[in-house]
Design a protein around this nucleic acid. Sequence first.
DNA 1: TACACACTTCATCAGTCGGTCAACTGACGC
DNA 2: GCGTCAGTTGACCGACTGATGAAGTGTGTA
Lengths: 129, 129
Amino acid sequence: MKTSPSHDLTCTPGDPEHPAASLPRAPSAAAFERAASIFRAMGDLSRLRLLALLAAGERCVSDLAEGEGLSTVSQRLRLLRAEGLVRRRRQGKHIFYALSDAHVAELIANALEHADEAPHAHDPEEDEP
Amino acid sequence: MKTSPSHDLTCTPGDPEHPAASLPRAPSAAAFERAASIFRAMGDLSRLRLLALLAAGERCVSDLAEGEGLSTVSQRLRLLRAEGLVRRRRQGKHIFYALSDAHVAELIANALEHADEAPHAHDPEEDEP
DNA sequence: TACACACTTCATCAGTCGGTCAACTGACGC
DNA sequence: GCGTCAGTTGACCGACTGATGAAGTGTGTA
């Protein structure tokens, strides 16, 4: 099987043991864009923390701010809302934010789990030298 | 439960039905940073596509490039590798990349699933007016 | 009605990100 | 050895991001 295929294909995997859980089926381009922008929204430490706080339950903005700039937090929430990750509802003076969907909490939980297992290998020489 | 704690807390939720699947337990600050940078790495359309390709199995770089700049792809892979999302192995002239962990494919699958359900509500007036 | 509170939006500005080009490394084949 | 293919690395540059402060909106209260 190591005999090269000799047509103009650039390369062929030799003996790959894919860990590939593999994706359900080929998803649409739009789904990819959505997914990427969800990830982008979650790819910021302060926003992620915000989401984690909301995972514990509904909160109002000034509660979430806790010493940080109110305006800053508001903008973060706006972004998260634009991505459909959080919902808000008004109650009198206050506006309460919550995760729009348990799916979001799942994503975070998943990533944290993964983060725990892989202790961030910053530029290793080679994985299999 | 709804009796307010009465210290200087700014606001208390009225009748929140948290969708909160809620996180397993309070995770470490380091775990949050890791998770955020994983999300950040996945929060780019081209990188996400790369990962999705790899979810289907091992591939070499020039195979992944497919008309795109080789250097560009290489840099994307470098970033993903620095985040521990992909692994590489050398076989003769070629270098094969694969997902480092089935966990990654799970994350992508999860997000794509969520992306399918929520059709991206760009700035709605109010969620509950 | 006037005022204070709880947020939001706008404009600005520094920091970061991603792509491109050029130079470099490493493994074959001659 | 020498050249070539496969891929990496570094440097630069335009584009985007996130924080900040000032001004605006809307709601309850005196």
